[in-house]
Design a protein around this nucleic acid. Structure first.
Lengths: 336, 336
DNA sequence: GTAGGTTACGTTAACGCTAACGTTATTAAC
DNA sequence: GTTAATAACGTTAGCGTTAACGTAACCTAC
């Protein structure tokens, strides 16, 4: 027989009422007179009573935990999506358990497995590519699931994101109309980031459709950080020949690339065009505004969280929500 | 009588053994023959058995959750500290529940309150300034607690960080020796970020001690993002007169400030000196290396997590661990 | 062949909380 | 003044898991 910490029973004894009355008083539900409720709360505070969420979740068979899986924290994109989601969830009384997969599907799988033991109210995953196991487990457990940042017509449950291939295509098309004919791409190794791969496909398609087909050179090795990776990508490309425009996986890599160009005396946009992605804060202070595309990151988080909350409460929502991406015509590419 | 989901009991029935044997088999503890264990695991998998951490935590009176509170995700500093911690914790089988306070102590208090209902194995807070309530609750619950990024001689439990005032002093002293006499500081509004405030105090002290005392002008309003805030700070300073050196709260603000200087035709370092803080990735690709200071962010996370793990397992450790900060003499300040 | 030890299990009673239902006062209605 | 409705509580039985203890079978040793 243990008995040490103060639980609902101790409060009940001290207040001279039943446990159920204490439970009701603390949860703020009906069935207790206001006078007695105040008295009970006073005693609970005096005894340093701390509710036990484990016991509560066990009894009611659910929790107020939301599991969120992101590829990495080292990227403003995900930080902003996260901010959008958390703002909405916090307001609704949910706590978030966050994980980063570092772009490893297997790591995501392991995390989902662990998470499910906590009976979360909902799960949020980044992207729409997951191991079959993950999909099966989530659907089997019938847990509201949101896939964010990318979209598909066949989500695990619901998804909110942008069309990455279309975004890539728009950027590529824009470059084609500006007269660029010798494109290159600097990103992550293929297969690591499916969204980046999709954008590259879009860019390629735009150039394939162009007045004539133009092969796109692809560079990019994993590096310590995005800035360095962008610079290294430029170095790699220039060892062979000079492309007339370079698309980057994101703005940070593009900035690194710009710096590398500067070191080599290449003028932007006269000698080489630079195209980023995301329209991150950094680009707003550059002397030359960057050609890039805005992604509705915060909005994505808010909309996603809202839809998911509806789902939790049993309200049916759109399964797939696609948000718009807007091209920003900067000055790191030629003018029309 | 409910009974729907499959628990340890269903597995036990299907396997023709007692619940306790299933519990032992699943936890991998002694007391089950290898043959029977394999059989049980096979059946558990077939039944899609998912352990219930709530029930487990309730029964054993602890959990494998670690609560982590950060000011914000929108800052590489905290992302890197986090990465260091998580790497260590994941390896030890802990999951992290992360919160961001947005620099509000009251928000931190509410979160700690909510977190404690989950009976976490440990709690990590940023900085050493917390509401009295937070300190009391954590010590009362006897939960291993780590304060990170800043240090104090009287932590809630243990702390790992750097001496921010000393770091500021070193930077200030360096500027004094370079001959700067008209310093300015661009940061956050006072009181918002205690660590930044401490660094400013250090810088001030260095100039007070200098060959003669030099008042430091302070600028900085809250802005949408760090880059913009840095630029706005420069604009604000230059409305009055030109300082010969400007210290920034961090590298990102410093970069924004540099861009603002560029727009106004000020040459760095000839016309104005720039000093950042943290040595973030961004600074490694700049054409002019920035004068700043490296903070051991990842190491801080690793050391902190390690100490905390020791604490969880009842091993006594150093209560206060101070990590070194190294000045980086870049070219955004005069040469000696 | 019995004492002592070990291995492989099973039984029972919590862990702290809440849903569902039961009971007792209080009020309202006619 | 009896009946019906309602508000304010209490009782009981779980939720899924594990600690602690119990037991039976099997070995080993002398």
């Amino acid at each position: 027989m243990r008995r040490s910490s103060v639980g609902i029973r101790e409060v009940a004894e001290a207040a001279g009422v039943s446990m159920m009355t204490v439970s009701r008083a603390i949860r703020g539900v009906e069935g207790v007179s206001e006078k007695k409720r105040a008295e009970i709360l006073r005693i609970a505070k005096k005894l340093n009573y701390v509710p036990n969420s484990n016991a509560r979740s066990l009894a009611v068979e659910n929790s107020n935990l939301v599991g969120i899986s992101l590829p990495t924290f080292a990227n403003d994109v995900f930080a902003e999506i996260l901010a959008g989601m958390r703002g909405t969830f916090e307001g609704a009384g949910y706590s978030s358990v966050i994980d980063t997969t570092e772009y490893s599907p297997e790591s995501e799988r392991r995390w989902v497995e662990r998470l499910l033991t906590w009976r979360p109210a909902a799960v949020i995953l980044t992207g729409v590519d997951h191991l079959p196991d993950v999909r099966a487990k989530l659907q089997d457990a019938a847990i509201p699931t949101l896939e964010i940042w990318d979209v598909t017509s066949d989500p695990i449950d619901i998804c909110v994101g942008i069309d990455h291939e279309a975004a890539g295509y728009d950027l590529g098309r824009y470059a084609v109309t500006l007269g660029y004919r010798s494109p290159a791409y600097v990103g992550a190794p293929l297969g690591r980031d499916r969204r980046a791969d999709a954008r590259l496909r879009g860019i390629k398609r735009a150039f394939d459709e162009g007045p004539c087909s133009h092969p796109i050179r692809v560079a990019g090795r994993p590096e310590r950080h995005a800035f360095g990776a962008g610079a290294a990508g430029i170095d790699e490309l220039l060892q062979e020949s000079r492309p007339d425009v370079v698309f980057f996986l994101n703005d940070h890599m593009a900035f690194g690339g710009m710096m590398a160009c500067g070191r080599r005396g290449l003028r932007i946009p006269e000698d080489i065009g630079i195209v980023g992605f995301n329209a991150l804060d950094l680009t707003t202070v550059l002397p030359v505004p960057m050609t890039t595309a805005t992604t509705p990151r915060r909005q994505m988080g808010v909309v996603g969280a809202r839809n998911l909350l509806a789902r939790i409460h049993g309200v049916e929502t759109e399964r797939t929500t696609m948000l718009p991406v807007a091209l920003i015509a900067g000055e790191t590419t030629r003018r029309e």
